[in-house]
Deep mutational scan, measured.
Amino acid sequence: SHFELRVGTITLHFDNISEELAEELEKLAKNGVHADEIRRWWEEWLK
């Protein structure tokens, strides 16, 4: 499923992401983690 995450002024787009993972990314964003860090985390997870 597709997921969009708003982090400050940036909107990150994720394809084929589980609800659980989407929730984890939302938690990171709410805790003030920068969009670049979240994207890096996601790319690492995909490997």
Rank of each mutant, 00 (worst) to 15 (best):
L21M: 14
T11N: 03
F14Q: 00
D36Q: 13
N31F: 07
E26P: 01
W42A: 13
H2N: 09
R39P: 02
A35R: 02
D36K: 07
E44A: 11
H2T: 02
W41N: 06
K27T: 11
L28G: 02
R6E: 14
I10W: 00
E4R: 01
I17L: 05
W45K: 10
S18L: 04
L12Q: 00
K27N: 12
N16L: 05
R40A: 13
K27H: 10
H34Q: 13
H13A: 06
R6D: 10
W42L: 08
G32E: 06
K30N: 12
F3G: 04
L21K: 05
E37R: 06
L12E: 01
F3A: 01
S18W: 03
R6L: 15
A29C: 04
I10N: 03
K47N: 12
K47I: 11
L28Q: 10
W41S: 07
N31Y: 06
K30E: 11
W42I: 08
E26G: 13
I17S: 01
H34W: 08
A29M: 05
E44Y: 09
L25N: 00
I10M: 03
T11I: 14
L28D: 01
W41L: 11
N31H: 15
W45D: 03
A29N: 05
K30H: 12
W41R: 13
L12M: 09
E26V: 14
T9H: 12
A22L: 07
L5E: 02
E4C: 02
R40K: 13
E43W: 08
K30L: 13
G32N: 08
L12Y: 04
E4Q: 03
G32V: 08
N31A: 13
E19Y: 12
E19H: 13
E44R: 07
D36R: 07
F3S: 01
E19W: 14
W41G: 02
G8I: 04
W42S: 06
L25D: 00
L28N: 02
E43R: 09
E24K: 14
E37M: 11
N16W: 07
N16G: 07
R39L: 15
A35T: 04
T11V: 15
I10F: 00
E24T: 14
L12G: 00
E37H: 10
K30V: 10
K30C: 06
F14R: 00
E44D: 14
R40L: 11
L21S: 05
R39A: 09
F14W: 05
R40Y: 08
T9A: 14
L21F: 07
N16D: 09
E26H: 15
R6M: 15
S1R: 09
L46K: 11
E37D: 13
L46N: 11
I10K: 03
V33A: 14
V7R: 00
I10S: 05
A35P: 14
R39N: 09
E20L: 06
E4I: 03
S1I: 15
W42N: 02
E4T: 00
E20F: 08
N31I: 10
I17H: 00
L28E: 01
S1K: 14
E26Y: 08
L5N: 01
H34E: 14
A22E: 10
F3L: 15
R39D: 05
S1F: 12
N16K: 03
E44M: 10
F14K: 00
R39F: 14
R39I: 15
S18V: 04
L5G: 02
E43K: 07
E44S: 11
K30I: 10
F14T: 00
E20Y: 08
V33W: 13
K30A: 13
D15K: 06
L21Y: 04
W42G: 05
V33M: 15
L21P: 01
T9S: 14
H34F: 12
T9G: 14
G8N: 02
L28W: 10
E19P: 14
E43D: 11
G8Y: 04
H2F: 04
E23D: 12
H34Y: 06
E24H: 12
L12S: 00
H2G: 13
L25H: 00
D36H: 11
A35N: 03
E26F: 09
T11K: 03
E23A: 14
S1L: 15
N31D: 09
T9C: 12
F3Q: 01
A22V: 12
T9L: 13
E20P: 07
S1D: 15
W41H: 13
V33T: 11
E4Y: 02
L5Y: 01
E26Q: 13
R40I: 10
K47A: 11
V7S: 01
E23S: 13
S1A: 09
S1H: 15
A29Y: 03
E37N: 09
E44Q: 10
D36T: 08
S1Y: 05
R6C: 11
L46Q: 13
F14L: 03
K27G: 11
L12I: 08
W42C: 08
W41T: 12
H13P: 01
W45H: 11
V33L: 15
A35L: 09
L25G: 00
N16I: 03
V7W: 05
E44N: 14
I17F: 03
L12A: 00
N31T: 13
W45N: 09
G8S: 01
E4W: 03
A29R: 04
D15L: 09
I17R: 00
W45A: 09
F14D: 00
H13N: 05
W42E: 02
W45F: 11
L12N: 00
V7K: 00
I38D: 01
A35Y: 07
S1P: 15
L12R: 00
A35C: 04
A29V: 11
D15Y: 15
A35I: 10
L25M: 10
V7I: 10
E19I: 14
S18I: 04
D15S: 08
L21A: 10
D15H: 14
F14I: 05
L25P: 00
R6P: 07
I17C: 03
S18Y: 03
E24V: 10
W42V: 10
I38M: 03
E4G: 00
E23Y: 12
L25A: 04
S1W: 04
R6F: 04
L5S: 01
I38S: 02
I38T: 02
K47M: 12
T9V: 08
E26I: 15
K27L: 11
L46W: 09
N31C: 08
K27C: 10
E23V: 12
K27W: 10
E19D: 13
S1G: 15
T11S: 05
R6V: 15
W41F: 14
I38H: 01
V33H: 12
A22T: 05
I38A: 03
E37L: 10
I17D: 01
L25E: 00
A22M: 15
E44K: 07
R40F: 09
K47W: 06
E20H: 10
